Computed example of a mutant assay.
Amino acid sequence: MRVIREQSVTAFADLVLPWLLRDPVRNNVAAQQVQGRVDGTMPTEDGALWLLIEDAGHLASIALRTPPNALLLTAAVPEAITALTDWCLENEPRLPGVNGPIAESDAFAQQWGERTGAAVELVMGNRMFRLDRVIHPQGVRGQARLATADDRELLVSWATAFHHEATPQWPMLDYELLIDRKLGGDHLWVWVDGEPVSMLWTNPAISGVVRLSGVFTPPEHRGHGYAGGCVAAVSQHELDTRAFACSLYTDLANPTSNKIYQSLGYEPVMDARQWGFTYAD
Rank of each mutant, 00 (worst) to 15 (best):
D186M: 11
E90T: 11
P268R: 12
E54K: 04
D46L: 12
P93D: 02
A205D: 03
W19L: 06
F129C: 10
P18S: 06
D174P: 07
I260W: 10
N27Q: 07
V190H: 02
N99W: 14
G223S: 06
E90F: 06
F12Q: 00
P101L: 14
A253L: 13
P204H: 00
Y175R: 15
A107S: 12
G40F: 03
R5F: 08
R273K: 12
V134S: 05
Q262Y: 07
P101Q: 10
I135R: 15
D193W: 00
L59S: 05
E45C: 02
F216M: 02
N28I: 02
Q138G: 14
W158E: 01
D186C: 11
E153I: 04
T10R: 15
F12A: 01
G185D: 02
C246E: 01
E153R: 11
W191P: 04
A30L: 14
T44R: 11
H237K: 10
G139C: 07
V140K: 01
W201I: 00
A76L: 00
D132F: 10
T44Q: 13
A280H: 10
E220L: 01
D106M: 00
H221A: 05
A56R: 13
I81V: 13
G139M: 06
M172P: 10
R141Y: 09
N126M: 12
D151F: 05
A103Q: 13
R22D: 09
D132V: 13
W112V: 00
A245S: 07
A60F: 05
P93R: 05
L188F: 02
A48Y: 03
H224V: 04
L17S: 08
W201P: 01
V123Q: 14
G228F: 00
W275T: 06
R273G: 12
V123W: 09
V98G: 07
I53W: 09
Y249N: 08
S8W: 04
E121T: 12
G57R: 07
D55R: 15
F12L: 01
Y249R: 04
D23E: 14
E220H: 04
A76G: 02
A13I: 09
G142N: 07
P101I: 09
M1Q: 08
V16W: 00
A159S: 13
R130M: 10
H58T: 13
P18Y: 05
Q236H: 10
E79P: 01
L72K: 11
A245L: 00
D174W: 11
P24N: 11
H136M: 14
H221P: 02
Q274S: 13
G100Q: 04
I179Q: 06
M124K: 12
R115C: 03
R127H: 12
P204Q: 01
R242Y: 12
T85N: 09
W50V: 03
G57T: 09
S157H: 12
V215C: 03
